[in-house]
Design a protein around this nucleic acid. Sequence first.
DNA 1: TCGCGCCTACGGATGTTGTAGTAGGATTGA
DNA 2: TCAATCCTACTACAACATCCGTAGGCGCGA
Lengths: 133, 133
Amino acid sequence: MSKTRLSKAETRILEQCWKLGTCSVREILDSLPEAERVAYTTVQTLVYRLEQKGAVRKVKKIGNAQLFAPAIDQSEFRGGLVRDLLDLFGGSPRLLVSNLLETGTITLRDLKALQNATPSRKSSRGRGGKGHA
Amino acid sequence: MSKTRLSKAETRILEQCWKLGTCSVREILDSLPEAERVAYTTVQTLVYRLEQKGAVRKVKKIGNAQLFAPAIDQSEFRGGLVRDLLDLFGGSPRLLVSNLLETGTITLRDLKALQNATPSRKSSRGRGGKGHA
DNA sequence: TCGCGCCTACGGATGTTGTAGTAGGATTGA
DNA sequence: TCAATCCTACTACAACATCCGTAGGCGCGA
């Protein structure tokens, strides 16, 4: 699972699912900001495709409305994206962060803050957190 | 420029161009690892599209073979990718680096090393060419 | 000069994505 | 009970991406 790539629009919908938790097509549609409003059936199609790809799943039926819930974890998903991106950085996360620094996207101050905020995991393979990759 | 998004396959070809420098379609093809080998004309099409998009340009003709060279800078290109990815991290580079840390993709030690390696970006424009890690 | 092999231009089959319409079943308020 | 709603399933379709084939041009060695 979670191996299939999601398109831009699909990702957008999945994001709303994360935001909303268990939700219906209508709720997703309504949660989209004006500027991104599309037709009900458009959202429906995207949700459908997300289900095909295993990114969301049907969890319940209320009346005749189907409720969906994200089937993949946000951080798991992000991890996949990062991995993809990393490929383009020769697999070097350091190069990636370097780029962030070079372009001023992130600052040394940020990094420092992160270090302090990060529970010093000595054994980096700890796998103690939420979810699972 | 460098505003046009490149597809996965196109990016793959562009990468080879960066690796090879000025090169012909055939050279690109030959440089692809076995596993990714495609037809000559496929590479040709992709190179052609890269040219359309301004990512490579014709630089010379040897015999009847056209030589191409990358027209956009690798780090410039990467910057765009990072920006895209960042959108999915709520625009927060810190979240991104956080993810890197959480997943053990990068370590605190790495970060520290980067900090030391980074000239406290007041003035230095680290225009370093091919600093491969 | 000829033919062979490599090159380019063009075209096309197939798949994916974005967007949405329609038909018809289920739900429900009056 | 009935019509107004809302939902799902299916279909449509254009734009784009991927991958490759063919036709014909060009350069070079025999």
